[in-house]
Design a protein around this nucleic acid. Structure first.
Length: 280
DNA sequence: AGGTCTGTTACTGA
DNA sequence: ATCAGTAACAGACC
């Protein structure tokens, strides 16, 4: 479920390999979402990893030769870090990065919706998928005016706007549901209906939920998230996600398909005239 | 056994 | 421009 908290957990775990060197990269699968650049091994070989950081849900490895590697985990991508002697190849291990000090980084992704790309460090921000990214939830530029401006006159439901990476980068389906519940805002409320007060609550909830999820090591529904294989635990803190028909105090959690994705919410605590009707 | 669902993103055609 | 539908893919679930 790599959304921002899982990507952040991964990036934090990878800080151990800063200043280490890539000795080679082995590509087992040539195409994930996109073709893996053929020259990746040749370009990264013998380069030092200077910096590893997150942009939205993207992971950036900045290398010493002014090249950056860009990873996206898609829906099921995972990165592991282990000693070479402990590594046993698993199904869907698509890319193996060998480091000095006998360590390996493994990119595993059953559904192959993730990808790996290469760019000059000075130019990668021009990649379309990066240049389109909206603000990071923790940037202070993300304030009421920024969001009001983006939501202005929009008839699109707020949940859909939260999932739009061009507005805020890093929120996916799980956290969109949890954030809106935390803010007591209906997922069906059109963007244009959010006033300053609601947007202010929304920003606080975005930061509160994401921070809390990061502190729990993210969410592990089916997969490991951290690079050493330990599970995240935020799923135990879900208020609405995956809790259809459960009670929150005396109210029921509902599930509705919205734009093709599951929306979980509590119609009583997230009231709106835009909510769909329920008869049972 | 087969149909349905899933954490993401991007493209299509209306 | 907006948006519903679909595609990429594997596996869990019923």
């Amino acid at each position: 479920m790599p959304e921002l908290p899982e990507v952040q957990t991964t990036v934090s775990g990878l800080q151990l390999i800063i200043k280490k060197q890539i000795t080679s990269i082995k590509v087992n699968t040539t195409k994930l979402r996109y073709l893996i650049p053929k020259k990746i091994d040749q370009i990264a070989k013998n380069k030092e990893i200077i910096r590893i950081y997150r942009l939205g849900k993207y992971i950036i490895f900045e290398l010493s030769n002014s090249i950056s590697l860009i990873f996206h985990l898609g829906m099921t991508g995972r990165i592991r870090l282990l000693k070479k002697s402990d590594y046993r190849k698993l199904k869907h291990d698509h890319i193996i990065i060998y480091l000095n000090y006998n360590e390996v980084i493994i990119f595993n992704d059953p559904r192959k919706f993730g990808f790996v790309d290469i760019s000059k460090t000075s130019e990668f921000k021009q990649k379309k998928y990066i240049s389109n990214l909206g603000l990071d939830p923790f940037q202070k530029e993300l304030d009421e005016n920024y969001l009001l401006n983006k939501f202005d006159r929009s008839s699109i439901p707020i949940k859909q706007l939260l999932l739009n990476q061009k507005i805020v980068a890093g929120i996916g389906n799980i956290y969109a549901n949890e954030i809106l519940f935390d803010a007591k805002i209906s997922p069906f409320l059109p963007g244009s209906q959010l006033d300053f007060h609601k947007v202010s609550k929304l920003i606080k909830s975005i930061r509160r939920i994401l921070k809390k999820a990061i502190s729990f090591g993210g969410t592990s529904l089916k997969d490991y998230v951290s690079v050493d294989g330990t599970l995240g635990n935020f799923q135990t803190k879900f208020k609405v996600y995956n809790r259809e028909n459960e009670k929150i105090s005396k109210f029921r959690v509902r599930r509705v398909i919205q734009y093709g994705r599951s929306t979980f919410f509590c119609p009583n605590l997230q009231k709106s005239k835009f909510n769909p009707p329920f008869y049972t």
